[in-house]
């Protein structure tokens, strides 16, 4: 038996902790992360923390319509961000709209990530004609403006939350497929993949247990950026009136509702939902940018 030589493993800090400290190096990104959590928390808790249920028409009073920020209602409630034309409290509407926007964007992002990632991994791993086919479709999707694809899909399918999500997935899967493929092309030729093949591992096992975990970093980065893009794309579609139904107003619909009053001086109906949208999109993008820095394989190890 050979001697147990340099037997103690090197003491290294856990990976996640190093990523956390690297991430915190940028104050801006850290602040953005806090904002992201605030936005997520506000969206999640909207039904409990908003002063009014904006969907309950019985609680609205048309006499409260278009009150400026800080005005009081007949019942003594303060509308901190004003009201819209139907007397709806803008703060409550924004909280609920944020919730709708985030649910749509995150579910579309997650589904696009899963489908695009699997297609990208399969393309990289098997190569050949399958790779060529998948990547030409990706090129085709990326060649069209996202808004155009989404418009076509929604015109064909009609309105509805699940249809908007489907349209967003169709727009976004190609980005994930390309990121997953480029990462997997590198990993596929690593010796540990050869070793797994030498041990008789199946294609599925090699793809999902060996290659996939090593490709996650760039895919997660694309994922954060794409969620931000999905929020703004959904807002665009809703603004154009072909997105979510009016019964579930998202931020885009709120902006559209106030748009026609903008020149009449009722700025708050559009402006505050716009601020909420910018806050969410910018903070998610900042977090995504810093994640890209931290998870960059060239700076790792």
């Amino acid at each position: 038996m050979s001697a147990v030589e340099d037997s103690a493993p090197l003491a290294t800090t856990p990976r996640w902790r190093r990523i956390a400290t690297d991430f915190a190096e940028s104050r801006l990104a850290l602040a953005a992360l806090v904002v992201v959590f605030l936005v997520l928390g506000a969206a999640f808790l909207a039904p409990w923390i908003s002063p009014q249920n904006p969907y309950d028409l019985a609680s609205l009073d048309i006499m409260d319509g278009r009150l400026p920020p800080g005005a009081e209602s007949f019942t003594g409630m303060t509308y901190w961000l004003g009201t819209d034309s139907q007397g709806r409290d803008m703060l409550s509407a924004i909280l609920h709209g944020l919730r709708t926007s985030l649910v749509v964007a995150v579910s579309a992002g997650v589904l696009a990530l899963l489908s695009g990632m699997v297609l990208g991994l399969v393309a990289a791993y098997f190569g050949g004609r399958l790779d060529a086919l998948i990547m030409r479709v990706v090129d085709l999707m990326l060649g069209f403006p996202a808004i155009l694809i989404a418009l076509i899909v929604l015109v064909i399918l009609g309105k509805g939350t699940e249809k908007v999500i489907l349209a967003l997935i169709l727009v976004q899967w190609a980005y994930f497929a390309r990121a997953a493929r480029s990462a997997a092309l590198v990993e596929r030729n690593r010796e540990y993949v050869e070793a797994a093949r030498g041990l008789g591992a199946s294609h599925g096992r090699i793809l999902f247990r060996h290659i996939l975990p090593n490709c996650l970093a760039p895919i997660i980065v694309v994922g954060t950026v794409q969620v931000a893009n999905a929020i703004s794309l959904e807002a665009t579609l809703s603004f154009l009136g072909i997105g979510l139904p009016i019964t579930e107003p998202s931020l885009g619909l709120l902006i559209a509702n106030g748009f026609k009053y903008l020149l009449s001086g009722y700025y708050w109906i559009s402006l505050f939902p716009g601020f909420a949208l910018v806050l969410a999109v910018v903070s998610i993008n900042l977090v995504g940018d810093q994640l890209r820095e931290v998870l960059n394989p060239r700076t790792l190890r």
């Binding site: 690593r190 010796e191 050869e194 070793a195 030498g198």
Partner: peptide, 13 residues
Amino acid sequence: QMIFQDPYASLNP
């Protein structure tokens, strides 16, 4: 079975 050259690349990190 094969023993590989690069002990850094041949183990799944």
